[in-house]
Amino acid sequence: MTDTATPTLLTAWKAAQARLKEGRIDSPSIDARLLLEVAADCSRTDILTDPYRVVTTDQQSVLDGYVERRLRREPVSRILGRKGFWKIMLNVTPDVLSPRPDTEALLDVVLLHFPPHQAFEMIDLGTGSGAILLATLAERFGAKGVGTDVSSEALAVAKENAANLDLDSRATFLRTEWAAGFADDSFDLVVSNPPYIPSDDIDGLDPEVRDHDPRLALDGGPDGLTAYRELAPEIRRILRPEGIFAVEIGWDQGAAVKALFEAAGFTDVIVVKDLSDRDRVVTNGPDPRTNPIPKM
């Protein structure tokens, strides 16, 4: 029998969850599990099927340290140095935006437009960790792409993620501002998750974002639209005639960003909602809600 004072996977999880809940942390159960999995070198399945496995003193100490950091509003992705996005796992550092589920709405548009075996060329402008580019390449084996960023540190993270996912043969990365240096009509797909938070709103964001994501990846200028004014004509220039673009937007920016892309010469521009029913993507591609991805 295990001493009742000896922590197990189950009791350690419950205790960490209780501390996070008391500290008013969102999703305390999920956060506690993710932290425990790394601290105790276990999986979600282990916690469910082997709940009485003993947690060592060293493992408990690591978990306690993780919980203390989370209570100080450090995101789990920053504590662990990794974050899941779509179906891939990415390394994240303070130099890159931590990828969020909202951004997966871009993938819904892209994967609907490009069939599984189609060959195409794409570019991810402001790639950060490489999340959008690498998630697309992982789903579409005929695709190859480029990720650009002005941050050398971010590009180093993206390159490491590509190598870890065995996608470095189809993904290249370049330090440049948006699409500077690329020829006209170069890509079948252009994607971007640019900074779109109005400058004066950043200090009011949750601490997990305000204190831990790079400001360069958040600050969209006085009205949050600075990047889109730069991107719209550039995307129009580098996109092939039959190609599509998809850019992430803030929930209240749909009409404004749509107008900017129409002013740049695009037609059939639409605003796509995310799973929370908020405007999330501006694109000239298909709307997943009215054009569901066909079953293979």
Rank of each mutant, 00 (worst) to 15 (best):
G250I: 03
A255T: 15
E242D: 15
I88M: 11
G145N: 05
D166V: 06
V38Q: 12
L155Y: 00
G130C: 07
E74C: 07
R24W: 08
Q60R: 14
E160W: 06
T57D: 14
F245P: 04
Q59M: 11
D201W: 01
K295G: 12
V96D: 00
I249M: 02
N164L: 15
E121T: 13
V38S: 13
T8P: 02
L133W: 02
G126S: 07
F261V: 04
F182S: 01
A138T: 07
S192D: 05
S199E: 06
F120Y: 12
L90S: 06
L36W: 00
D203I: 05
F187S: 00
D124C: 09
I202D: 01
L137D: 00
L167Q: 01
R33Y: 03
G65C: 11
K258F: 10
P94G: 08
D203H: 07
E230N: 09
A171K: 00
G250C: 09
L133D: 07
I88Y: 04
R175E: 15
F266V: 06
V157P: 03
D211C: 11
F173A: 04
R19W: 03
P241S: 14
T93R: 05
L167P: 06
V190Q: 05
T267E: 14
D201V: 01
R170M: 13
P94A: 09
K14Q: 15
R78H: 12
I270F: 04
G128N: 00
A131F: 06
Q17N: 10
T176E: 10
I197H: 05
T172A: 11
D184Y: 06
L231K: 03
C42W: 00
K258V: 08
T127W: 02
P115N: 09
E153F: 10
V62M: 06
R140G: 01
A180S: 15
V157G: 09
E22L: 13
K83N: 12
R78Y: 08
D102Y: 10
Y228C: 04
L205C: 04
V157E: 04
G224S: 12
R53G: 08
E234Y: 11
V76D: 01
Q118W: 13
K144A: 09
G130R: 02
G130N: 04
P195H: 10
W86A: 08
N161I: 02
A40V: 09
T45W: 12
L133E: 03
D102R: 01
S169G: 11
D64W: 04
P241A: 12
